[in-house]
Design a protein around this nucleic acid. Structure first.
Lengths: 158, 158
DNA sequence: TCTAACGTTGACGTTAACGTTATTATGATG
DNA sequence: CATCATAATAACGTTAACGTCAACGTTAGA
């Protein structure tokens, strides 16, 4: 059982942010002590780390993360796969819908990876040009150190 | 030469956003007609597409994109590699600094790719579980369709 | 038990990234 | 050259994602 300050240190979030994520439903509300103090579990910390990952890495808005986390929660078993649905036909429908959503999300991730790799290539190309410039300047610098006087003293006398 | 509305259609940005990006220095200010109308070139469009990519794919803030675009601009030749610096020693220093920054950016991109792939794996795992659930339900459904009457009519007569 | 440190709940403030509206000027077209 | 769709500037509005501050309750340790 952790208090909010420890969770903040573990995750790097501020206490305000942690409460805010609970407020907007991005986090399951933790149990409270008799006095009202929030008591977090390890699962809460891991949940927050997923949220951070989605936020920072994918650049998702917190709204988008809510959808994504719906599946992540199910994945970690914090929530049942098909909760209170009794009729098997509705269950099947729901599962097929989830499969479709997941497929779309996976495709989106592939696309992102592709674009990042493209940017990487551009940056690498550019870095090569920079390195070529460095090499050239270093070469010129060497020239100037090995025969510097010749040009300067030239045409003075003789 | 494009007017702002064509640029908007090409890039998918609104006119407001295009002007805003110019305002905060995220875009080189285009030439103006005598009357003051902005006249964009193909280079401007490509520039904007890079900005969009960095914004959407990497989730960068516009501030962060400014730094990134410093290099991207040099890459497309819209800006010289080492502009008005005359002293070769300062040039070398500058180039080495750029190389360092680029290396850091490349590492950051690698890290992002890694995290995305990790998320992909989790989603794929979860999708497998969903598909297993679908298969199970479909199987049960078949059972119910092949021998439905037997149970219902059973015990009626005979 | 008392107190210092921490927690909670409002409530208002802030910043980035635009949207929207109004007013006025521009430019292609019949 | 008249006009009608566009463009520009200015200014205020909006939303997400928190920060900050005040007032008050809780908790753990001397």
């Amino acid at each position: 059982m952790f208090k909010i300050d420890e969770v903040a240190r573990e995750t790097g979030l501020t206490k305000r942010t942690i409460r805010y994520y609970e407020e907007i439903g991005l986090m399951p509300a933790p149990e409270r002590s008799e006095g009202g103090t929030r008591q977090y579990t390890q699962a809460h910390i891991e949940h927050l780390q997923r949220v951070i990952s989605a936020r920072d890495v994918l650049g998702f808005s917190l709204q988008e993360i809510q959808e994504y986390m719906g599946y992540a929660q199910a994945l970690t078993g914090q929530r049942e796969l098909y909760p209170q649905i009794r009729e098997p036909e509705r269950q099947l429908e729901k599962l097929r819908e989830m499969d479709g959503t997941l497929e779309a999300q996976l495709r989106a991730l592939d696309e992102k990876v592709g674009k990042i790799l493209a940017m990487k290539q551009e940056l690498e190309q550019f870095r090569n040009r920079v390195n070529a410039g460095i090499a050239r300047l270093e070469h010129e610098h060497l020239q100037n150190e090995h025969q510097p006087e010749t040009k300067i003293t030239e045409g003075k006398n003789s």
